[in-house]
Amino acid sequence: MQVQEIYNKLEKQFPGKVGLFRGDIFDPCLNVDAGAIVEVCRYLRDDPETSFEVLSDLTAVDWTKKDDEKIQVVYHLFSYGKRHQIVLKVDLPREAPRIATVEGVWKAANWFEREVFDLFGVDFVGHSDLRRIMLPEDWIGHPLRKDYVEQEEYDGISTQRAPLVEKLLK
């Protein structure tokens, strides 16, 4: 199925919830309203024509351009049966981003969402086990955000190191 057709189908099914379709780039993508993500995903998985049985990847991008600040959660969907893929994007505010979990649609989302929560600070509402996955539980900040500043000390251990050259010159 062509991505354009999938988009038309979605637009008919969820009027006003999907938009900004880009078909001219390498991996055609479309924006989905944050509130509708679970319905859209479940529909895409269950509809026999689309049948996206796999969530290939779930990640996020932090956009800090002026007037366009957002955390964009990116879903890469894939269908082994139909051999097509689509990219869904959801724009969230940088301050306190929240979105419903798609764990109920694809189990793989459990770990993907934990990673995005850990490294971007996106709150996945309804997630069964939303804990940090890569970093320690008491770490401060979300490293993959563009404005992240590493804490100077963790557990009494310095995270900073003087540049080697300066050290040698001393």
């Binding site: 390498f26 990847d57 991008v61 890469h76 990219v87």
Partner: peptide, 20 residues
């Protein structure tokens, strides 16, 4: 400017690179 998602078949399966 643009973005791309590329897959290769690594020994541990589909390795995907999403580069923006």
């Amino acid at each position: 400017a643009g973005e791309v998602y590329v897959r290769v078949e690594a020994p541990r399966g589909d390795m995907g690179y999403y580069v923006v």
